[in-house]
Nucleic acid binder design. Structure first.
Lengths: 252, 252
DNA sequence: CGGGGTCTTGAAGAGACTCAAAGAAAGTGG
DNA sequence: CCACTTTCTTTGAGTCTCTTCAAGACCCCG
């Protein structure tokens, strides 16, 4: 099973990683050593996860908090109509399973897209952690604000613009982890996933992708993204350079 | 000037309020007495604001943080194309001007819709406040998560559904402040505001409102909202009762 | 070689947009 | 208090984007 996966998820092997340092990952950046050690002590041992595995499901009452070390995890909601609404894609460093109402059952599900490595925290200790580690909590608050800004940025847009925005976001985030060439970027998602992320139909996503390829902006085939014209992509995505060029989140 | 305003903004007079207790308002609920007193000491004296006045504008470098005591404040972005994207409507208790990048210029503008009362905090002290008042920061993190969940809930929807969702949200929030009858709810917004909130054209908002009135769901005229069929409104908005009936945010 | 999932393409239809113009309500000034 | 101006709302006609339904192609994997 694992051997077979490798061909496809070549970027995401299953390393034996029991000592990943929390400080390497985003929501904890800027947190002093002493606090980190306290957080390290609270967490459980990192665990690995097969692809297409659920961390938790919408409606689950208990559960844990997770810090993603390696791999891709998709967060989504299932609507009454049966439709799937993908909320976001967690990449290494992302904090998973925070929701505004901590005591309610989970309002969304989390599923791995690739083999993944995470460490977990007991759910009941989250308030305690937050109230005792204000610098961590501050990062968490700002991170939530980022998600909010991202969500507002991607709305009110045509299919072409929102697809461009999504791919540009992937491009920028992957760039943080890949030091080598980023000619071809592996994205473990299908056209249907894109559709469920942006609220479009798979058919229309397909047509729009064909159009973007024809226009020489980007190609997305066999889970490989190739950006042909980065400035055109920025243009389509509506990048606003005057604000904060280093951050995608200043995109309107 | 004020006398003239009164006829229209009868719900939002300009009281002389120098001693509003912070604890009455949402982001601080659950914060212990001692912390509240510290927060009270940090804030400036509450100020009043005329309607249609900007607290700050997109691109401003300095500024302050605000806690809204009374009135409506609209947060919006101006896109390169000149279009306006309304992010949210702040009501009493809302914390205003938080953004993910604290050191960048503001990525959005804030404008009062009614006469309003706010108290402000010096911007440079926000990190200090957050890191020294973890319980306050925790509330702030959860609040940001709420905004995020709200934003995801309102997307991927038809015009009718998203308008229903928006009005239901207003309805639920106003209900918290009005103890009496909520037959007619005053909303200081125009159809164009609704359009800019949901990413629709004013023309289509108008047609959809006519349709909703014809269907006997709700009427919105002269800034007065009258909900005729609450359960139909819940149905249209896609309320998911199995999660957390008391919170709009469990709506998908 | 066969089968399920994914991608591609066509044709028809619904939802939302644009342009345009008129009517109603609110704000302004004499 | 009335007449004027401005903003907001309403309606129609035509167009475009996106969806729906359907069928076939491709491709990975057994």
């Amino acid at each position: 099973m694992l051997a077979r996966l490798k061909s496809r998820y070549v970027h995401y092997p299953m390393p034996d990683c029991n000592h990943c340092a929390i400080r390497d990952y985003s929501p904890c950046s800027g947190v002093p050593e002493a606090l980190l050690n306290r957080l390290q002590r609270l967490r459980n041992k990192p665990t690995t996860l097969q692809p297409k595995t659920h961390l938790y499901r919408q409606g689950d009452v208990q559960g844990q908090f997770y810090l993603l070390y390696n791999g891709w995890v998709m967060l989504y909601k299932t609507l009454r109509t049966g439709k799937r609404h993908i909320l976001r894609y967690a990449l290494p460093g992302d904090f998973i399973s925070l929701q505004s109402d901590l005591n309610s059952p989970m309002n969304h599900s989390a599923q791995s897209l690739t083999p993944s490595i995470l460490c977990s925290f007991p759910r009941r200790s989250i308030i305690e952690i937050m109230e005792n580690m204000p610098q961590f909590t501050t990062q968490l608050a700002l991170l939530s604000a980022r998600y909010y800004e991202y969500q507002t940025s991607i709305s009110h847009r045509s299919a072409q613009e929102s697809i461009a925005f999504l791919f540009l976001d992937f491009y920028e985030r992957i760039k943080l982890y890949e030091q080598g060439s980023i000619e071809n970027i592996f994205l473990p998602i299908t056209q249907e996933d894109i559709a469920d992320t942006l609220g479009l139909t798979p058919v229309h996503v397909n047509r729009t992708l064909r159009l973007l390829a024809k226009q020489g902006v980007l190609e997305f085939q066999h889970q490989q993204l190739k950006v042909s014209d980065l400035s055109a992509l920025y243009e389509l995505a509506g990048y606003e350079p005057y604000q904060n060029p280093s951050s995608l989140l200043s995109i309107i």
